[in-house]
Design a protein around this nucleic acid. Sequence first.
DNA 1: TAAATTAGCTTACAACTGTAAGCTCAAAAT
DNA 2: ATTTTGAGCTTACAGTTGTAAGCTAATTTA
Lengths: 201, 201
Amino acid sequence: MGVRAQQKEKTRRALVDAAFNQLSAERSFSSLSLREVAREAGIAPTSFYRHFKDMDELGLTMVDEGGLTLRQLMRKGRQRAASGGSVIRTSAETFMEVLDSNPNVFRILLHERSGTTPAFRAAVAREIRHFIAELAHYIEQQADRPSDAAWAQAEALVTLVFHSGAEALDLKSSQRKPLTERLVLQLRMVVKGAEGLANRY
Amino acid sequence: MGVRAQQKEKTRRALVDAAFNQLSAERSFSSLSLREVAREAGIAPTSFYRHFKDMDELGLTMVDEGGLTLRQLMRKGRQRAASGGSVIRTSAETFMEVLDSNPNVFRILLHERSGTTPAFRAAVAREIRHFIAELAHYIEQQADRPSDAAWAQAEALVTLVFHSGAEALDLKSSQRKPLTERLVLQLRMVVKGAEGLANRY
DNA sequence: TAAATTAGCTTACAACTGTAAGCTCAAAAT
DNA sequence: ATTTTGAGCTTACAGTTGTAAGCTAATTTA
């Protein structure tokens, strides 16, 4: 890669990072202006267009990148569970740790899931579907369940995890223990109930 | 009430209604400007301040009003269930009907739940807590469950219902049947699982 | 070596925002 | 009958936004 392409890539990253860094509980992606992001990245507003067609394109890049990051981290967590310990508990705790270290990655997914841009909602939905698919696959194999039931179960589990994640974002990490316990209990309900329904019919 | 107070109330309603009407899948409350709302309500921008301190105050009014409306509709639905039929199925179907007739009432709750204004998030959380409390109370009585387990269960149920509601918003009402069926299945998992966990210990 | 490409810049503009100041005039209070 | 109140208006201003036009200078290509 030439000197020029290298510098361009560096600036592009600066833009993505600038946008991620400006996210917070009080600041969503859609509330960021092109000029703010450019300012934070240290370039002129109009130079932004050398990298992205518009803010939407930047945002979609972030959603994709965020979804990938999150899945990688969760996969690492599942490896930890494989080497001993409850899958449910380990997964719940892993997720909370991810929140702690990458809050803004989760924030953009959470917020844009119910955002106003159809393209964003679709992108987030796709990322979440990846989550569900991985989990549904695991359930199908592990519990030998028909695939539609496995999907419904996986979706319920992911929904509950995301919801607790959203609540956890508003708390200091020291306050998250009871929330995690309640989440574990809710996940157990779903798993136990899915077993019950599968065995009865 | 005097003529004057009557007219004022009328304009206030016009503002609230204007704001509700401007909501859509592509337009969240926080993306509305004061001037837009005033325009739609047929008053001058500066006259807005005769009724609300700022847009946040209008938004909080809408959240309160929306939460109330939603709970009233759901209560009506529960009465229908009392006179025969599965509670789970009837509740799920009622919720979908509410979505159909009052999409924007649900939209503001859904969107501001993960929005950027702390006051909004708190207000929505409070409304949802009302939902959960009503349901937890029902479960405690009906199934004689300890109150913390009943709460966790109720929260899980409400979480799943809201999530399906969010997905349903993006669909035409004719496309919502399978989604409702999946929701019913997920709710059954939770109920069944909660039973299982309660009986085992 | 000469020409072409391009990342980033400066300047500029029209559109929109929230809101301050102050007027009008009908209803309410005295 | 007179005064006070207040909902709604017009005008005005400063700030921010996205983005168009065109320049510069350094890398890349021919």
